[in-house]
Design a binder for these strands. Structure first.
Lengths: 217, 217
DNA sequence: CGGGCACTTGACGCCAGTCAAGCAACGTGG
DNA sequence: CCACGTTGCTTGACTGGCGTCAAGTGCCCG
């Protein structure tokens, strides 16, 4: 992939890396720092589609479609690898294996969105938050960001989580406080600890891949 | 693509075409009939991720990932083209243009899901339904299914729409009645008519591609 | 004719939104 | 150095949109 790399971008908190409705000429891979994918409505409401963590690829939509349908914003300082949209087609011709990987990425993204849609559509507030915190911990742990006390860094604001889950800031805050009080999870000061993983997963309907019901017809 | 076609499948209403958590060896393109993509929770709740219309490709997840993370069910009688998962890789090697198209499909799917997520997360009940009916009419009209009275066939049940929008059946029913009474849209007897397109789009925050705000910095 | 399914409508209650006030941490400029 | 505005978090009081319960209709099918 190094051959297709075109440079590095640094973004400050609050910066818009890719703009909704724009036809960006570039795609990115997050190297460090965190951001959000966000869709804005004309009346000011916004929905956080997802969270960008190190290693995530962003801008595929801009790469293969006419335009992005959401923005990407930095929440912390970020460093990103830059790729040219115009190189994507030559990559597909030269490296079918890489093309396959990119399709795999897109399918994974779709899978994440389907799960989020289910959570937002069907779960009640405390279940949604349990789901989100479980997923956060899982992803960040997989990135090796867990410290020796089992905490992972989570530098987002409560309003970001609220807008991702379709909840109000106030209710999100109260529900986080309840999870803390009940000893399930504690997200404060930019760090997240899972205190009772089993209970949290059950509450958030997070499926342990091991425990999937295997149909044996 | 004909070379990769492996046969035809017919499915009755209620049939599960692809099962959640399964590693299906096949992918499909819907030829006729309609279905739903649906995720089920352990406690019986379900979320309708999306609606399968003629021309839609399904099973890409099963094709490139370990397993589907939602099921696909037929709602009417359906006919589908069958493709073998194992042929996907050879397609990527032989036809980079087709591989690109498939990635484009996946990105389009992601885009639809992002819009749905925003609707379910941020809009209130009547707005969500206005959004959904607008999108339905648009997609079905593009398929040439509009009759000379401006109606399109919509053979789903109210519970399917309710489960797609994260609303209860009862509230969905009452909201549909309200849109009908107010002269915005009428979905009854399996047919959908848009009576006041402008008002419906405004209510559902459906963006006219023409009228996008072009940033001119 | 009886049972099931989809749709409809009214009554009631609760989860979560809104409003409002207050605190702590931070950066800025007089 | 302190006053002041801004941003993010917290908490209590009140309200309302939407869920649940319940009953009823029309239609299809065995």
């Amino acid at each position: 992939m190094q051959k297709f790399r075109r440079g590095e971008l640094r973004a400050q908190p609050g910066t818009e890396i890719l703009a909704q409705d724009s036809t960006a000429p570039q795609m990115y891979t997050a190297v460090s720092g965190m951001g959000i994918r966000v869709r804005s409505l004309a009346d000011g409401r916004r929905h956080v589609i997802g969270f960008v963590l190190p290693g995530d690829f962003i801008g595929l939509q801009a790469g293969v479609m006419e335009a992005m349908n959401y923005s990407v914003e930095a929440v912390t300082d970020m460093r990103l690898c830059v790729f040219n949209r115009s190189d994507l087609w030559s990559l597909f011709k030269a490296r079918p294996d890489r093309a396959y990987d990119i399709t795999h990425l897109a399918a994974t993204e779709e899978s994440l969105l389907a799960e989020a849609l289910t959570a937002v559509g069907q779960l009640e507030a405390i279940e949604r938050i349990a789901w989100a915190l479980s997923r956060f911990h899982e992803r960040l742990r997989a990135l090796g960001l867990e410290d020796n006390k089992g905490r992972v860094p989570l530098p987002y604001r409560q309003i970001d989580l609220a807008d991702a889950l379709g909840l109000s800031l106030v209710h999100t805050n109260k529900t986080l406080a309840r999870l803390r009080r009940d000893g399930l999870a504690d997200w404060s000061g930019g760090w997240l600890s899972i205190l009772d993983k089993v209970a949290l997963h059950r509450l958030g309907h997070v499926e342990d891949l091991q425990a999937r019901p295997r149909p044996l017809i």
